[in-house]
């Protein structure tokens, strides 16, 4: 069985079997990263374009390395959203890239749904590398890979996601994926940063971090952005850190073998205490390595074969 889809736009429409396949394919990919010669010829002659409308060193580098380890030609295009609004439309840019021979377009954009526009206009595969507050599926997949690697399973685990849920595509993608794989997901944050009706996604909402992290197997800490405070969604960074910062004391309320995750980049001393970020329980660096492995797996599954989407019968 393969991943029978052209694009990866979000976790929402991935089945448990598809998630399983991606996570299993990432395992041999991780072995490649550990080798001295970090390269396989699988995607020789394929072109992967990283189209980043938002700055992101981490995700872009991860996709770039994933493509290079698989022998694809990877090209990075970074541009600011403001110039896009004024100038060429997204679909015109995309069509240009396709004419140039892109097989996969990885897109990061500040507008939710931008990857969906691309996917409608392109026959190349589109991978959503984060769109607005909507989804960031590769982050969720690497998080789930990390959880499964360390815990041996996902089903039945208690995963607490702490922070600005309202503006977090990482949270949304993880909620879809983790819930589909049978985890018990909790979201923790100030009421002003919890999106409406999120409980319908099968999560429990906590405004108290102490209650929310109790007995958790995994604490996933989200980055808090100063911009939200400026919009008045919470009073001060200081109060946020005091009420929601993940400290060693709060970690002690979770299970002793709790895993601490953060999608990065971290605000040390705000949403996460430095001693927690650097603790034995932290898998934050492991997440980065796994990110490359998961993205290699996706590039293989979406672009590795012929083009199943054009093949009939």
């Amino acid at each position: 069985m393969g991943l029978n889809r052209k694009d990866l736009l979000g976790m929402q429409d991935l089945t448990a079997e598809e998630i399983q396949l991606i996570l299993e394919t990432a395992e041999p990919m991780k072995d490649i990263i550990r080798r001295q010669i970090k390269k396989v010829p699988t995607l020789r002659g394929k072109v992967v374009i990283n189209l980043f409308y938002e700055p992101s060193t981490r995700t872009r580098t991860s996709f770039e390395l994933a493509g290079k380890y698989m022998s694809a030609d990877t090209i990075n295009i970074s541009t600011s959203t403001s110039s896009v609004v004024k100038g060429e439309t997204l679909q015109d840019t995309a069509k240009t890239l396709e004419v140039m021979g892109a097989d996969v377009v990885v897109i990061r954009h500040s507008a939710a749904g931008a990857p969906h526009i691309l996917s409608k206009h392109l026959s190349a595969s589109v991978i959503n590398a984060g769109d607005g507050f909507h989804e960031h599926p590769t982050q969720a997949l690497l998080d789930m890979f990390t959880i499964k690697e360390k815990k041996g399973r996902i089903a039945g685990l208690k995963v607490a996601i702490v922070g600005d849920i309202l503006h977090s595509r990482v949270a949304r993608s993880n909620i879809w994926g983790l819930a589909r794989m049978g985890a018990e997901v909790r979201v923790i944050g100030p009421a002003t940063l919890v999106p409406p009706e999120i409980e319908k996604l099968g999560v429990t909402i906590y405004t108290s971090v102490e209650e929310g992290v109790r007995d958790a197997d995994v604490i996933m800490v989200l980055r808090i952005q100063l911009e939200r405070q400026q919009k008045g969604l919470f009073p001060t960074i200081r109060e946020y850190a005091r009420l929601y910062g993940i400290t060693a004391e709060r970690v002690s309320l979770a299970r002793p073998d709790v895993m601490i995750m953060h999608p990065g980049p971290m605000n040390r001393g705000v949403e996460i205490a430095p001693e927690v970020a650097d603790s034995m329980q932290s898998v934050i660096n492991e997440q980065v390595t796994n990110g490359v492995a998961v993205r290699m797996a996706l590039l293989y599954l979406l672009a590795g074969g012929g083009n199943p989407h054009e093949t009939v019968g």
Binding site: Q12, A112, G132, R172, P195, P196, E197, L201
Partner: peptide, 13 residues
């Protein structure tokens, strides 16, 4: 509209 679907689509409600 602010509600379940704005949450899911990641659009401001």
């Amino acid at each position: 509209h602010e509600g379940y679907h704005s949450t899911v689509f990641g659009l401001k409600g």
